[in-house]
């Protein structure tokens, strides 16, 4: 049987079983409760987004009303935020930081993960455990050493200062190591015989086989850095170096927070995350790895 028919059969089989299960049994109480719980969960997820968009369409006097549909909808906030030059700067800062950090993570996390997974060398486990153990240290504990480090290296208030703690992550390394476990050694050995060097084997053979993991990691890292607040707030001083979340928090003045503007900025800043998700989600397809092996 070919793999083509394998993959095409799977979904239809699933769909059938779901259908038959549905038609055979009337919904019982447990099922109703489950649906209800899922529905509430869905509401919970969608509520802040709806509220954000709704608030961004309101005038200042209306923002403390909880009604979803604004009485007098306006796009004034959008015009204001987009015409305010600072928002563009922050947006570009955020894009630069999130993109560079994502690329760096994809490259280095998978390189280290691959090495830890596929090479046998003394001290391999110690290195792996040392990397993993850094996951247990919370960011709040790290910001002071980071700050002191940035200060002594002259990285304060710079892209490098904002980015350096996140250019490689223990989580990403761990994730990639685990995914490389699923890449059979035969592929790598075949490539070794074909004459690729170790770096080429990693780049040309192993990396394309873990695309789903890379896509997932890209989404995680991009979102994490796009929404990062605490560290960028601490390390930046000048308004020009702010990222979107740091900049937005500063909308308003000493006595009043301009929620409608913050929500407008937030609404605009969700767009890149949507784009990233749409680009990468198509790579998150299981079973790519197995196609080159026995049928």
């Amino acid at each position: 049987m070919t793999a083509v028919s394998d993959t095409s059969e799977l979904p239809s089989v699933k769909a059938e079983t779901v259908l038959s299960a549905r038609s055979r049994k009337p919904a019982n109480l447990g099922q109703i409760l489950r649906w209800l719980l899922l529905f509430l969960g869905g509401l919970l997820m969608i509520a802040p987004i709806t509220y954000m968009i709704s608030t961004s369409l309101k005038w200042p006097h209306e923002i403390y009303n909880v009604n979803l549909i604004p009485e007098e909808p306006t796009i004034e906030n959008y015009t204001y935020v987009l015409e305010d030059g600072r928002f563009y700067l922050w947006f570009i800062n955020s894009i630069i930081i999130a993109v560079i950090t994502t690329v760096s993570n994809l490259f280095f996390d998978s390189l280290v993960g691959y090495t830890l997974c596929k090479f046998r060398f003394p001290g391999r486990y110690i290195v792996f455990i040392a990397i993993l153990s850094t996951l247990m240290i919370p960011t709040e504990m790290l910001v002071i050493p980071w700050y002191m480090m940035s200060q002594s290296f002259g990285w304060l208030d710079s892209y490098w200062g904002i980015m350096f703690p996140g250019l490689m992550t223990a989580f990403g390394t761990f994730l990639m190591k685990q995914f490389f476990e699923s890449v059979p050694d035969d592929f790598l050995e075949a490539a070794r015989i074909d004459g690729l060097n170790e770096f080429q084997i990693w780049w040309k053979i192993a990396m394309p086989l873990v695309k789903p993991a890379l896509a997932a990691l890209a989404i995680f890292v991009f979102l994490g850095n796009w929404t990062a607040f605490l560290w960028p707030l601490i390390v930046t001083n000048s308004v020009e170096m702010y990222t979107v979340p740091v900049g937005l928090s500063g909308f308003g003045d000493e006595v009043d927070v301009a929620w409608e503007l913050i929500m407008t900025g937030a609404a605009i800043s969700t767009l890149p995350t949507l784009v990233v998700f749409l680009i990468f989600q198509r790579f998150i397809i299981r079973g790519v790895v197995m196609a080159g092996l026995k049928g």
């Binding site: 035969d186 050995e189 070794r192 015989i193 197995m290 080159g292």
Partner: peptide, 19 residues
């Protein structure tokens, strides 16, 4: 190195690159 031995190998589970 394997590449310098002037050999070629066929594996049990083919190991042809799926991508």
């Amino acid at each position: 190195e394997p590449k310098d031995r002037d050999i070629a190998m066929v594996f049990q589970n083919y190991a042809i690159y799926p991508h």
